[in-house]
């Protein structure tokens, strides 16, 4: 239980957290903006990892491999979107169906259950062997992704997408094609998750058909931790996305600390579930027991005075 061991392990946790932060931004788009809990991502993460690794094996440059992963994610999101909007299947179930089907697709892509890739033989962008370089590169990815999304959700199309999630009735009354926007949102979300899968595959040096299991919970954990801890200070949209990435980093640092205490890694999934449950409960209790009416009125009048 030397503190030095923990400190040595922290950069790795930050690196993993950043990659999962990209995944969590994808979850944020569906869960927070579209108000859909999209379970496709459990399959999409592995699809992204598998596509990226296999394209690298085939000799493509790394940026083509990552673009391939991104495109695979777009496709997965499109299928969930069509199942939901054209076939009238509830979003939750549509996601589960796509995810279930992706298991077979991923086995086909990987030509087996898993494939490894060596940083010595292939021109990988990041690897857990060079953690600090990986952190810088993934951080750059995060900044670019947040900047592009900030721009996109400020455009007419992006505003319509946000409105579709916020109030579908009003959106239709204002001439917004809500179904189309749901499909676009699901595609964008899954593309980011697949990109994160591609980065994760390179970072850990392999892609596995099981690598995405439970990733929706980790993504939700990051979103909820980020929103609960930073919602007071991060009001701007770009900062909210940053809060989600920080949420993912905090999640992995907490997990690392827990394992430093000597808790068996078999308990990881249970601990994750407990963390998510606690943070969800905190935001619920905050609304329920904090005398919301008076508080909100006070906030309103304070705002009125300032503006």
């Amino acid at each position: 239980m030397e503190i030095a061991n923990l400190l040595n392990a922290l950069p790795g946790a930050v690196g993993q957290g950043l990659i999962w932060g990209i995944m969590a931004i994808g979850v944020f788009i569906t869960y927070k903006i579209l108000d859909i809990a999209d379970l496709t991502v459990d399959g999409t993460l592995a699809t992204g990892g598998a596509t990226c690794i296999m394209l690298l094996h085939a000799g493509f440059p790394v940026w083509v491999a990552l673009l391939g992963a991104f495109a695979a994610g777009l496709g997965a999101g499109l299928i969930t979107g069509l199942l939901h909007t054209c076939m009238g299947i509830p979003a939750l179930l549509a996601g589960i169906l796509t995810q279930y089907a992706l298991w077979s697709v991923n086995l086909q892509i990987l030509d087996g259950a898993n494939q490894s890739i060596s940083v010595d033989k292939y021109p990988l962008l990041i690897s857990s062997r060079y953690v600090s370089t990986a952190i810088w590169i993934v951080a750059l990815f995060v900044i670019v992704i947040i900047a592009v999304l900030y721009w996109f959700f400020g455009t007419s199309l992006g505003c319509g997408l946000r409105a579709s999630g916020a109030n579908p009735n009003m959106s239709r009354a204002q001439g917004i094609n809500v179904n189309l926007n749901k499909i676009i949102g699901l595609m964008l979300s899954n593309a980011l998750v697949a990109l994160a899968g591609g980065l994760l595959g390179q970072y850990q040096g392999f892609a596995d058909v099981k690598m995405g299991i439970g990733s929706i919970v980790i993504g939700l954990a990051a979103v909820i931790i980020g929103e609960t801890l930073f919602s007071r200070i991060f009001r701007n949209f770009a900062l909210r996305l940053l809060g989600v990435v920080l949420g993912a980093i905090i999640y992995y640092v907490v997990l690392q600390t827990i394992s430093w205490f000597g808790i068996d890694s078999d308990f990881q999934k249970m601990l994750t579930a407990i963390i998510v449950a606690i943070f969800l409960a905190v935001s619920y209790w905050k609304g329920r027991f904090a005398r919301p009416a008076k508080k909100r009125a006070a906030v309103n009048s304070a705002k009125g005075e300032v503006k």
Partner: peptide, 16 residues
Amino acid sequence: LALAYRRGKVRGLGHG
């Protein structure tokens, strides 16, 4: 208001 202002128009990638 911006959403309503675009009622019946194409919602593209122009600035909000």
